[in-house]
């Protein structure tokens, strides 16, 4: 998986490109955690992530817990159908906020 980070004002847009699976999860976790500071505002652009497994969900959960502990905010954007399915099966769709478009996600923070 490739990760690109773009800064827009005080918001970081983190683009996850590829598969968020058991193989990529540890590296993705470390990379994203390094972008979390006090009151961080993060948008995860998931439009180019077409596969997620429970290992990937665990990364999202760890990040969400970390953001909450640091008074930050994080939202997901552009989820593809396959990823949405996994989010629904696991109840993550109720736990994490997600938006169809990146712009709406940015405006929500």
């Amino acid at each position: 998986m490739k990760i690109e980070v773009e800064k827009k004002d005080n918001i970081k847009i983190i683009r996850l490109i590829g598969d968020l699976d058991g193989t990529s999860a540890p590296e993705v976790r470390e990379e994203i955690i390094s972008h979390i500071n006090d009151n961080s505002k993060l948008v995860f652009d998931m439009s180019q992530c077409e596969y997620i497994s429970s290992a990937g969900l665990r990364v999202l959960l760890i990040i969400a817990k970390k953001l909450k502990a640091k008074g930050g905010q994080g939202v997901l954007a552009g989820l593809v159908e396959e990823v949405k399915d996994v989010m629904e099966i696991t109840g993550f769709d109720h736990m994490l906020t997600s938006y169809e478009s990146i712009d709406t996600a940015i405006n929500s923070l």
Binding site: S54, A55, L61, K65, H94, L96
Partner: peptide, 20 residues
Amino acid sequence: LSASIEERDIGGLGIHIAKR
């Protein structure tokens, strides 16, 4: 599956996904 971010446990999701 309805726990909040703070209460959510890290484990057990994979088997649940597979079974579904």
